[in-house]
Simulated scan of single mutants.
Amino acid sequence: MPGPKDLDPSSSPRALLGAELRHVRERKGLSQEALGMRLFVSGTFIGQLEAGTRRLRPDLAPMLDEVLGTDGFFARNCHASHKSRYPEHFAEAAEAEAEATAIREYAPLLIPGLLQTDAYARAVNRAFDPTAPEAVIEDWVEGRMARTRLLDHPTRPLLWAVLDEAALRRPTGGRAVMADALRHLASLARRNRVIVQVLPFESGAHAAMEGPVKLMEFEAAPPLAYFEGIRTGRLEDDPATVAQVRFTYQLLTACALAPAQSLALLDALAQDYSYEEHP
């Protein structure tokens, strides 16, 4: 793993806390593993805190202050790193996503958030909460579209998405919305900004039948896997678990259509949706 990256403490609250944590830990002569043992977390987790890819949990901050003798610094400043426009269960994953150098994702039921259009995101969020005020829906959509601006950079992060055919054939938001969403996907693939593969129905049983898969890699921190359910989410840094998820993803890419074939299917489905909307 690369050496620790020098963080700009002014760039975010997490960067400030991470830089201070590394400074104090090294001053105390503790390794990441040794500090993790005292806090009942992994050394990997400490490294991710220092790299700014994980949030400092409120229950952990006072323990850090006690072990490191920092006179309440982490407890006082922890709350700042928890301010987010995203739902609590997804906030830490969204922040890690913004720091990732590579993201690999399998989506069984919907187009992933980073690849959604405005109209598609609006339809997904409205289905998620049919009774939410329109202002709340718009705020959620704005947050999701803010995430897509990660792709404004020409090369980083690498984004590799395997989409189940079911996600492409479910007319989320109506046929016109789906046509635009698939054309957007195809455009990103043609500009070589993302790698898109479609896992077709004809592949049959596959390694991720139980749900979505998401992996994130970082320049100066260990990789993470993200597990998501209905209104729940969890980041996992256990090396064995991450390795198993990576193997699952490799199996998925082996079963999926090649990128060129996937692009052809996206074009065909977009054309079908357009034709059915305007016969």
Rank of each mutant, 00 (worst) to 15 (best):
E33I: 05
G52P: 01
G143L: 03
A119C: 00
E134Q: 14
G233L: 09
A100R: 06
R156D: 12
L266P: 03
Q197E: 05
S81G: 14
D152W: 01
E105M: 07
R22V: 04
A34Q: 11
L49K: 07
E277I: 01
A161N: 08
V24D: 02
P222C: 02
R156K: 14
E99A: 13
F45V: 04
L158V: 12
P171R: 08
L16N: 01
W160F: 12
E97A: 11
F218Q: 08
M216D: 10
R54E: 02
A260F: 06
A268E: 15
S81V: 01
N77K: 14
V242R: 07
A75G: 08
D164L: 01
I195C: 13
G113W: 04
L68V: 06
A220Y: 04
A220P: 08
F45A: 10
R14P: 00
E88N: 07
I111Q: 01
M178L: 06
R231N: 14
Q32A: 15
E99V: 00
L158F: 10
R231H: 14
D59F: 09
D267M: 08
I137E: 03
M1T: 13
R147E: 06
R234F: 07
L64I: 12
S42H: 03
P154R: 14
S12R: 00
V41G: 01
R126C: 00
R126F: 03
A167Q: 02
S187W: 11
F40G: 00
V67C: 04
T131C: 07
Y249R: 02
R149G: 00
A264H: 12
A146R: 08
Y249T: 06
P279S: 15
A135T: 13
Y86T: 09
K83W: 08
L159G: 01
E88Q: 13
L235F: 09
Y86I: 09
L252A: 07
L252M: 07
R231T: 13
R175G: 00
I230L: 15
A34K: 09
L185A: 10
V196C: 10
T131D: 15
V162K: 05
E165L: 11
L235G: 08
H23Y: 09
Y273E: 05
R147I: 04
V177E: 02
E105D: 11
P58T: 10
F218H: 07
A80D: 12
H206F: 02
W160N: 09
L110V: 13
G36T: 10
V141K: 04
H23Q: 15
A19D: 10
R190L: 13
S203M: 05
S10P: 00
E20V: 12
A189I: 05
L215H: 08
S262W: 04
V196W: 03
M145D: 00
F40W: 07
L224D: 12
P222L: 00
L199C: 02
V24Q: 13
P2H: 08
L263S: 11
A61D: 09
R38W: 02
L168E: 04
E26I: 10
R122M: 04
G43R: 01
